[in-house]
Design a binder for these strands. Structure first.
Lengths: 247, 247
DNA sequence: AAAAAAGTTGCCCAGAGTGCAAACATGCAC
DNA sequence: GTGCATGTTTGCACTCTGGGCAACTTTTTT
């Protein structure tokens, strides 16, 4: 049974309103949405990217082609919903961090929370299916970009408390954090092929931590002094930063 | 005359082969390609994004619809060619930098080279036209991502001399550099609306420099360091605002 | 000049995406 | 319950995309 929202009188209906939570309409919509992404993912698995149509998805999900387009504007959008979910979870974690915590520390913590089998599994599968597929990765890009926008918003809320906020600082930082997170995922997939074993996930966790560390240290070259986290940023101040002293 | 490649006997043909440079075929293709992007951009200007078809572009460029698809796979691809050109120029500049130079310094120099009227003009226009347009900005994202891949390649060539290269370092750095460059462009457009006056370009240059500075300093908080940073990054604030003094 | 290679075009077709209006489901008031 | 308002699904028709194919033209090679 792919999606059976329009069948009423099913589970909890007769006796009492069990909870005033989500209404039936909302439940139906959520179920249909889920059925669509499930069907899309199944077809992606079985047929490979680009070898199935919207109609195929609609049929598998038990809805009409037209209804599919009420939910998603394209097959890729339906599939990218997985990535969106993943990144939304990251954002959720980020927002849970205490406001006083340094930004990069919050980002690190939020990202590490993702290195959990249930959470990465769908992403790992998408990676393996669409890694070399431009058609598919386009929507992935959009999801990551959307996440950047969201994190800019989140960071703005957090940093705006009292201080004037620097748009460049905000955007450059948010973009870099996302890029580093993405880089860690890429490297992880490169090294572990999306395996979900505990060691693999531990590797992922470490990669995420390391990427935030690189960002926080200004990408201090690893070759000269691998031991000291003591800064000594190799970017000589003459060009990289306007003189830190007064004018 | 939009594109007149299939008309021979025109400029240099009768007397002597002036140079064995680009063949006629290559010239024709380049001309057609140019005609297409010009036409697409003109239509974007006049009709707004999404309000013209491939056929419109083909007509304006003086070619058939079918030929358009021999060059680009979609309208967006044709328009994104502008961004591609812009970013390719940045990469070109990057590769020109001496190999011994610190990575961020090379990136800074390459990016600053772009703050030139002829180069940014097309990008600025695209920004103003497509800022709020998801359809359009999708292809832009792809262009930036492509640039990231390219810069990873360039960086790998440069860093691989003798040392084992750390994939994470490479990818996180490249991604962050691109993100920061993008952030600087975004902020610039936000502040200056894509104006091409000397002051505006100077602002852009400073934003690009600042963004690389932020990256190189590990995004040291511009506000008074709260508590936890035991690794007292020496490069403190002051990277935030493009100091309004002389230069 | 003739053949070969590369490029263009028209024709055709499957599929994407959207507006519209009818049919259906749900929520709410009585 | 009955009935109405509101939200959702669906079929239909339509335009546009994207690409295979074969005929045709242009450029290059021999």
């Amino acid at each position: 049974m792919p999606a059976t929202p329009p069948s009423s009188a099913d589970a909890p209906s007769a006796s009492h309103p069990p909870a005033d939570g989500p209404s039936r309409r909302e439940l139906n919509k959520a179920a249909t949405r889920q059925a669509i992404t499930d069907a899309a993912l199944a077809l992606l698995r079985s047929n490979g990217p680009g070898n199935f149509t919207v109609e195929d998805i609609a049929d598998a999900a038990g809805i009409s082609r037209r209804t599919f387009f009420n939910y998603f504007s394209s097959t890729e959008a339906a599939i990218a919903a997985v990535t969106f979910g993943f990144l939304d979870k990251a954002l959720q974690q980020f927002r849970l961090r205490p406001a006083g915590e340094p930004f990069l520390e919050s980002a690190r913590a939020a990202l590490v929370e993702l290195a959990d089998p249930m959470t990465v599994a769908p992403l790992a599968e998408l990676y393996s299916l669409g890694q070399a597929n431009p058609q598919l990765s386009r929507s992935e890009l959009e999801a990551w970009d959307h996440c950047t926008v969201e994190i800019i918003t989140a960071a703005r809320e957090r940093l705006s408390e009292g201080a004037e906020l620097d748009e460049l600082y905000l955007r450059a930082l948010a973009g870099s954090v996302i890029s580093c997170g993405k880089a860690a995922m890429d490297v992880w997939f490169l090294q572990c092929g999306g395996s979900l074993t505990p060691e693999s996930l531990s590797t992922l966790r470490q990669l995420l931590i390391d990427s935030m560390g690189l960002l926080g240290s200004g990408f201090a070259r690893p070759d000269p002094a691998p031991t000291t986290t003591q800064a000594t940023t190799p970017a000589d101040a003459s060009t990289a930063t306007p003189s830190p002293d007064r004018h």
